[in-house]
Nucleic acid binder design. Structure first.
Lengths: 357, 357
DNA sequence: TTTGTTTCTGGTAACGATTCCATTTTGGTT
DNA sequence: AACCAAAATGGAATCGTTACCAGAAACAAA
């Protein structure tokens, strides 16, 4: 009998328990006083009829939707899917659902998504496609629900934001390579229009300048795929003064670079050392293992979500005080030392007989 | 002026255009006849007031919510996040939003999630935690909205389902190893309570029996993590007749196994060959590259979503005819031959000078 | 002009929960 | 028994939309 009987309504319960709808509402939402006798009667009527409040009706009355919107560039990307996981968990603890949308870094799609979501959610968690976009800024300014930005900030607008220390992470990674004695370090990959990439480049450059080494940056926003990376590497390695180390600005570049160097039979780290930004599952499994800057992905998601729910709780009472300067929360990154930077010996695998116990 | 002015309502528009609410509604939803004159007047009033229909009110009136629910075991898992990506894309094309929920393979969480979602979405895309659960089956039977299962089916209940050819894929992989001359093939990893894993074991076993080889299966549902896998491999390799090849039932087992064999300095494939179920980004990058059974992930998501929207379109008109036997759609898997099975020479990387052009 | 069709249009009752406000009940005090 | 404050309860309006149904307007034919 699929889709047959309609759900019980609040007035069904009221009739069944012989009370007014007001009383039932009070029982459901707690708070107001209800005599123990009626309470019990209503409770049993509710369970008997299997009553579940209709959310649309509640929302219509001006209540919260108990839904938040999550807007990310991509969900297939493990960075964002891990964030989504953390966010979803926090939301569930708050009895709230998460609508997932992806923009593919397309501003038009982002704009449309935000418009749709504003009317249908209590708040938004957003990874902005562009930190500068005037259009996006205006859209966010006029928005009637709380918005939190994460991973990338928005300029010239006061929005609570959580990001990671891209600058510091990249600087630490570069410093580390410099400490190994490398002077010619190539900074490779990454879309030049993205905030995170620029911050990492800034960190790289800062470290190089500190050491009086000449920065060598090759960002190719159009072709930072495998092919583009391959061409870039070949070009640089064929030069008169080939790089002794490569600092990859993003995950996929790290993977491509690794794969390309292996194919070219260039030994890592003895011929070319390698450090990547952003950790990934196999970075420790590959031989040589890859040194990376690790971002606190779960914490990023948790913090952003917590911030949103904090605002949501506040919003119930008074309007938010937006006058106070909002400083982005910056989460610490961590340099994970493995073999590709030259820190560890290339791992000597243990033999089979030695491994038993 | 955050959250200041309230949104314009349909009756605001009606007043402004000096028509009845019914007419405005007709303009918005199209269909019925409206004279060109009034049409223009209403249209301009709509744009002028920036009117956007209130979704809660529509839903309350019994319209669709334009939201579907997606229930997966985990979103950090690249398999499911790729599915989610595909689903989200189809949904967007249908002007529908996707609520993402994760169960962590926990039946209680699944149960609660479904209950919540039923009242708030038009339909559900579900990866069931258990194919057998009587409780889940009953819950699904009483549900008032269309449900599609994917990746794992439900037994003894007619629900449209999309799965991949786990059996055939595993059999093909095993046959391939047998063709290489390996007789002692270990089938490793995977949770024994999951449908997909059992199907793969069935495929493996079928191939082994065909070839009169003795199946050797080691599923350890409690400990199929790195540690458990490591212990298992050591145990098997120390035996009198160590396996010549390993068929890994799932992604994470493949990765662990690969890493462990490398650590043990056991050469792949010359000492132990390796084939995994489910492809992953780095499988082709690792040296040796890993032969895997590839599942059509995007197609799985697309197909499931399309099936749901098909039902949704149908549901508008007549009740669904559930009498017809519903056969699960099975999507083809593909065996990707790489080096770890012994097919290719271990790749001779090209030298740097040879690579330019 | 009258009549009979179409074609448009608007009033109003739902949908299901919340909440103000008024009313009833309770219980404690003189 | 009489009174009053406090506690408990219910009626009915409200949120914004859709759809039934009836009524008005337009137009054609007689």
């Amino acid at each position: 009998m699929k889709g047959g009987k309609r759900h019980a309504t609040l007035s069904d319960v009221a009739r069944s328990a012989d009370v007014g709808t007001t009383t039932v509402s009070r029982v459901i939402n707690g708070g107001a006083k209800v005599s123990p006798k009626t309470l019990a009667r209503v409770r049993s009527a509710i369970t008997e009829l299997g009553f579940i409040p209709n959310h649309a009706a509640r929302t219509l009355r001006g209540e919260q939707t108990k839904i938040i919107g999550l807007i990310v560039p991509s969900i297939a990307d493990s960075f964002f899917s891990s964030c989504a996981d953390a966010i979803q968990e926090v939301a569930r603890r708050h009895g709230t659902l998460v609508i997932l949308t992806v923009t593919n870094n397309d501003p038009a799609s982002e704009n449309a998504t935000i418009s749709t979501l504003v009317r249908r959610t209590d708040g938004l968690l957003l990874v902005p496609t562009s930190s500068h976009s005037l259009e996006l800024r205006n859209q966010l300014r006029d928005i009637s629900i709380p918005v939190i930005c994460f991973d990338r900030p928005m300029y010239d607008i006061q929005i609570p934001t959580v990001i990671t220390q891209n600058f510091e992470g990249a600087r630490a990674a570069t410093r580390h390579l410099l400490e190994h004695g490398f002077r010619r370090i190539l900074c490779l990959g990454g879309e030049s229009e993205l905030f995170t990439m620029n911050e990492r480049v800034r960190g790289y450059t800062a470290a190089m300048k500190e050491a009086n080494a000449r920065p060598l940056i090759d960002m190719r926003s159009t072709a930072c795929d495998y092919e583009g990376t391959s061409n870039a590497i070949v070009k640089h390695l064929k030069g008169a003064k080939p790089p002794q180390a490569i600092f990859c600005l993003k995950n996929s570049t790290t993977i491509s670079t690794y794969s390309i160097l292996q194919k070219m039979k260039i030994s890592i780290p003895s011929q070319v050392a390698l450090v990547g930004f952003d950790d990934f599952e196999l970075a420790s499994t590959l031989r040589p293992s890859i040194t990376v800057v690790q971002q606190p992905v779960e914490e990023l998601g948790h913090t952003a979500a917590r911030l949103l729910f904090q605002r949501l709780a506040l919003a119930k009472g008074m309007p938010i005080n937006d006058k106070e300067k909002i400083k982005p929360i910056q989460l610490k990154t961590r340099l994970i030392l493995r073999a590709s930077c030259g820190c560890r010996e290339v791992e000597e695998p243990q033999s089979i007989s030695a491994s038993g116990h």
